[in-house]
Design a protein around this nucleic acid. Sequence first.
DNA 1: GCTAAAAATGTAAACCTTTACATTGCCTTT
DNA 2: AAAGGCAATGTAAAGGTTTACATTTTTAGC
Lengths: 331, 331
Amino acid sequence: MSSLTDVAKRAHVSIATVSRVINHSDKVVEKTRLAVQKAMEELGYQPNRVARRLRQKGGRRHLLGLILPDIQNPFFAEIARGVEDVAYANQFAMILCISDENPTKEAFYLDVMRAESVDGVILPPIAERDAAVLKLAQSGMPIVTVDRTLHGASIDTVEVDNFQGAYEAVEHLVKLGHKRIGLIAGRANLSTSRDRQRGYEEALIAAKLPVRPDYIRVGDNKQASGRGLADELLSLNPRPTALFVSNNLMAVGALEAIHMKKLKVPQEVALIGFDDLPWAEALDPPLTVVRQPAYEVGRAAAEMLLKRLGDRSLPAAWLRLRPRLIIRNSC
Amino acid sequence: MSSLTDVAKRAHVSIATVSRVINHSDKVVEKTRLAVQKAMEELGYQPNRVARRLRQKGGRRHLLGLILPDIQNPFFAEIARGVEDVAYANQFAMILCISDENPTKEAFYLDVMRAESVDGVILPPIAERDAAVLKLAQSGMPIVTVDRTLHGASIDTVEVDNFQGAYEAVEHLVKLGHKRIGLIAGRANLSTSRDRQRGYEEALIAAKLPVRPDYIRVGDNKQASGRGLADELLSLNPRPTALFVSNNLMAVGALEAIHMKKLKVPQEVALIGFDDLPWAEALDPPLTVVRQPAYEVGRAAAEMLLKRLGDRSLPAAWLRLRPRLIIRNSC
DNA sequence: GCTAAAAATGTAAACCTTTACATTGCCTTT
DNA sequence: AAAGGCAATGTAAAGGTTTACATTTTTAGC
């Protein structure tokens, strides 16, 4: 692996000049620049990003971090695509780490981000008060939170109107005549879960329907918990005629539970999930969902981060995107 | 951000000693070690990974790269989980990049890996002869290829017996009495696609059935192409009574096409996909698939890489895992 | 208590950049 | 023709770590 020194020797100039050619090619006279470029080419020289980052303090390192709680959730995967597209278009590399909804792991990867000195980090915080994220933000690392709200600091944020999405979903069920609507809520301690639950409750209240605590179960956003809790809800007497499920994976789980109980969808149970799935059409039946614009969330977050990198003094931005109810055949 | 020097000063020792405490705490006497650890704690010291990597040449940098062609494909996402679990258990950070099946992008990220000087890289090569990967491998970077074979170098590999999986799938269809079996093959230029096609053909030949070129379509592994090609195949006259689809996303697409044509599965068309899906149970109908042990592929690859990091002189290892036919209701 | 060996610790160079500051060389002005 | 100014280039330090080698301290054997 050739270094600056090798190039400098070959081009008969100093390393400073080579460095200048690489970075701000202005202060170098044409002839020298060409000689250096020729030497770089001949040696197949590639700047060492590690050394560069060690030296460079606040600069653009063209590296951006994304920490996701669960890569197997298509919602997050779609966010990743959005971020990546913007990053790549701007010659930024995106490195992705998986925190697995595990605070220790998140802290570990936040530290990796700091230590690798990425330019900025995008992440859905694991908890509403996430000390590790806050600490990194306070240390001056540009951070954009997505999907979930973080309390305790003013940080760039892109989120979706979860309340609205849930409200519309439940309203839709009400309009279809459902009076007993169950909720499988998402992990507590997540702003999204709470907002969706609030949307559910308010929609019921607006329809003058009772909010029955026994119709509300709290899951962990995983498929298995959706299955288990749907099973519980559907064993109730009288059982709910409709279920609103607060996340995509749990919705699939609920569907499995319904199939296991051999109930007909939507005749015996209606089902609405939060988050779309690329194969929602192919499910049995095609699933009605509240679609979050996940790709746009990712794009917007990356753009926001890039903007902040350009000007650190910008006030914290807050973008709230609107979800959309996609009606298929499950209710 | 405190540095080695700060810790050294505070503990009244030299930076070398501090470094030793951090790395191989053997050569340091108990008392000193405690003093250093105390100082580190008080200062909240965290080693600077960038500086560390700059210095450390062949050593363990505790950073490992994974480049995946498509994060939205659950198969790859599952591999990522496998790799991540092993990495994390060994205090390695895993950084993940998305090449999007795009050679330019792959080359870009390979360069990022080199430049960030990760300890090693795991990836399914985008093409069978992937010059960029070969070049990086030749430069001494430990590489483990997964899922797909790379020609032109002896490199650690973890793959799945694609031939066998496809053979069993088609054999199963034959046993059920199907005589006209269509194939939606995967992207050309991928070893997996070819092996699966070979399995399909040999199974037909073994059953003394003709291999009809018009029953074979080549897709790009994306959902949309599965939909389109299934539509084409099912418009043929006589149309195939069964489809074997060479990847999960295309299988979902095929399912959509079948639904659009209002054909009954499995009565009118049987369907088998390659790669399982976490929600295959909830599809209409639950999809029969050849399940690849993706998680194990990831785990094995990471373990292989870690092993190689321990001893560079090891001969290239080659692990072939067996897929399993999971019979559900689509045939 | 002295010496030699072993163990612990310290010193300084190296890794590859970037960049402040110094130097060189050329051009313009009087 | 000399001086001053400016543009181009060079020199060297710094960034935080690891590590070969040098030095100091401890231990053991007598």
